[in-house]
Amino acid sequence: MEVIGAGFGRTGTASLRAALETLGFAPCYHMSVVIQEPFRVRQWLDVAEGRGPGWDEVFAGFPAAVDWPAASYWRELAAHYPDAKVILTVRDPARWYDSVAGTIFASALAERRPPPLRRRITRWLVERRAPDFALYPRMAKATVMDRVFDGRVGDRAHVLAVFERHIAEVKAEIPPERLLVLDVRDGWEPLCAFLGVPVPDEPFPEVNEREAWHRKRRGRRLRLVLLGR
């Protein structure tokens, strides 16, 4: 592992992932990898519940990792990979909250309400055809909702306080020479200078995470129901 992303989901992590892969840190681990390869859902659930596997197994073949669930374990990863550099992506807190509330938090909060019949049928089909992926809500709850936010994802003030405390803790605990605090709107220059690589002759990636999240979620559920993979 050469690069550890400590930034919360919805802070430009999809754009950072694309940028890192362009710079040669490929493949880069991201929550989308977990969704695309459902056996990883069970891996993370085992991590959250103290059964392993080890970090080298989780990230085998990946020189970089960003986004949740990896970012939930930034302390552990920074200690396990002492030579890896750490990138903390940041964003305006209010805008970040609006983004996260409309995506993964919306799903978590929906789990607390009785689901409509169509969703119950879809869930039943997924459980039958893709049992590993059916564990995704439980995994996300264990690695993000409970671990990071104490299960209080519906409490805006609490979530924002956790967001700001997280940024302060990463800055305080990671030595300055090992840490880059990055707003992805700043483009290639700070990232490339930090990693010691040339600036590419192309625009910095701009990935609309909210649209991509909904599109991938719908597409993944459909493939699981129809194809079982």
Score class of each variant (00 low, 15 high):
M1K: 03
M1V: 14
I4H: 04
G7Q: 03
F8T: 07
G9S: 14
R10T: 06
T11H: 04
G12S: 08
A14Q: 12
A14P: 09
S15I: 08
A19C: 11
L20G: 05
E21S: 11
G24W: 08
G24E: 11
A26E: 13
P27E: 05
C28K: 00
H30Q: 11
H30Y: 06
M31W: 10
S32Y: 13
V33A: 13
V34C: 11
I35S: 14
Q36I: 10
F39T: 13
V41C: 08
V41Q: 03
L45E: 02
V47Y: 00
E49M: 10
G54Y: 02
W55F: 09
E57V: 15
F59T: 04
A60D: 13
G61M: 01
A64H: 02
A65G: 15
V66E: 02
V66A: 03
V66Y: 00
W68C: 02
A70F: 06
A71D: 04
S72M: 02
W74I: 03
E76T: 07
E76Q: 10
H80N: 07
P82H: 04
P82R: 00
D83I: 04
D83V: 05
K85L: 07
V86T: 03
T89V: 01
A94K: 05
A94V: 09
W96M: 02
W96V: 00
D98V: 03
D98F: 01
T103F: 01
A106Y: 13
A110R: 01
E111V: 07
E111P: 01
R112S: 01
R113T: 10
T122S: 13
R123K: 07
R123D: 05
W124V: 13
V126R: 00
E127S: 13
R129Y: 00
P131F: 02
L135I: 05
P137M: 05
R138V: 07
R138A: 09
M139R: 03
M139D: 01
M145K: 11
D146I: 07
D150N: 14
R152P: 04
V153T: 09
V159C: 08
A161R: 08
V162W: 01
E164I: 10
H166G: 05
A168Q: 12
V170A: 02
A172G: 10
E173Q: 15
E173V: 13
E177W: 07
L180F: 07
V181Q: 04
V181Y: 05
V184R: 01
D186Y: 10
G187P: 06
W188Q: 05
W188M: 08
P190C: 08
P190G: 08
L191Y: 03
L191I: 11
L191F: 06
E202L: 15
P203M: 13
F204G: 09
V207S: 11
V207C: 12
A212H: 14
A212Q: 15
R217D: 15
R217L: 14
G219S: 14
G219P: 10
R220E: 13
R221E: 15
L222T: 15
L224K: 10
L226D: 13
L227S: 14
